[in-house]
Design a protein around this nucleic acid. Sequence first.
DNA 1: AACGTAGCGGAGGGGTGCCTCCGGTTGCAA
DNA 2: TTGCAACCGGAGGCACCCCTCCGCTACGTT
Lengths: 193, 193
Amino acid sequence: MASADQLGEVFARRPKRADARRNYDALIAAAQEVFGECGAGASLEEIARRAGVGIGTLYRNFPKRLDLFEAVYVEEVRALSASAADLADRPPWDALVAWLHRFVAYVGTKRALAEELVHDSEVFRSCRTEIYAAGEPLLRRAQEAGAARPDATFDDVVRLVSGIMAYQFPEPAQRDRVLAIALDGLRHPAAQR
Amino acid sequence: MASADQLGEVFARRPKRADARRNYDALIAAAQEVFGECGAGASLEEIARRAGVGIGTLYRNFPKRLDLFEAVYVEEVRALSASAADLADRPPWDALVAWLHRFVAYVGTKRALAEELVHDSEVFRSCRTEIYAAGEPLLRRAQEAGAARPDATFDDVVRLVSGIMAYQFPEPAQRDRVLAIALDGLRHPAAQR
DNA sequence: AACGTAGCGGAGGGGTGCCTCCGGTTGCAA
DNA sequence: TTGCAACCGGAGGCACCCCTCCGCTACGTT
């Protein structure tokens, strides 16, 4: 399958020698931090600095800016997509909502990153596929159980939820209230409380 | 009232001499364009270039980057807030939805701008007040008519709608579908179709 | 322990953007 | 028409960033 290959490819790009591997990991971590703070336009030198690594090391591991984006992104997606499996035993609607909450945490800081990648990265498309493969069954299950409205596509839901979460909320209570309003709209009309 | 003063102040800052005024207007127009395309990090020199004006002229009119943001922003807000008055004769729910659609058009390209401004601008706070003054009565009217759920604040609604619209939708049909889901969640449970 | 090599760091050239400053230009009032 | 004040443009200094290159370091193997 092409999409799994893409993700594995990025994963396999990691260096083998112990010191190199340490630097690689530090760079990914620093990049997650800095991209989260400054958006996709963040300075690569700042990332190297924050990782305690020379700029040359950054460029050896990630020759193009896009390579770094991809590596960070793949890391997030792996975790998110894995988390869908844990939810199989929950009731359909609860499982969907729980997963969407995790999705929210993932998408929160990565919006800028995604917007950068969406334009011209094969890997990004693979990540999208991966996420959809994880989340779509949850929606379908909820629809089949009559808990979610049948006319919503998974893409609709992703946009609904990720859009709302793009802004930072001063207090989590409001964030949950707004998300609840949106999810009420997603419930099946007949199942509405 | 402090908020009205703030907006008027920015408005009054416009130059009087004919040529200066022309340049000022060209700069605002160019800035709207360029910010829309490149986000808030856009190059000021690009804006001056696009306006057909020297960089010095830009800095004379807008000594700090923030000043330019504010001027552009105030321009948008004036139009949006004025548009709420036209809707007074529509049914409560329809009026709210119609205004939110206009709000969406306004917020679409200006998200980056708003995020920049939100941190440290008195004028931005005034604009917020202005928008809320225009939109909040529409929500309250809908709530009093039993069409909108009573536990939603206007701030909730703004975040709900503006978040969703922050992403560009490849086709308007999907945008409307997603917005419809969200607005369904906003309706009063008893009034739900 | 000794060695070959993968990996390291950061100096430096090129580019771009920010902002200041000042000699030249032009609208407008008299 | 004339004069002057307001206004103009862009050169240039400074800062930051991107990316390459190469002499040095230290990991892992034998």
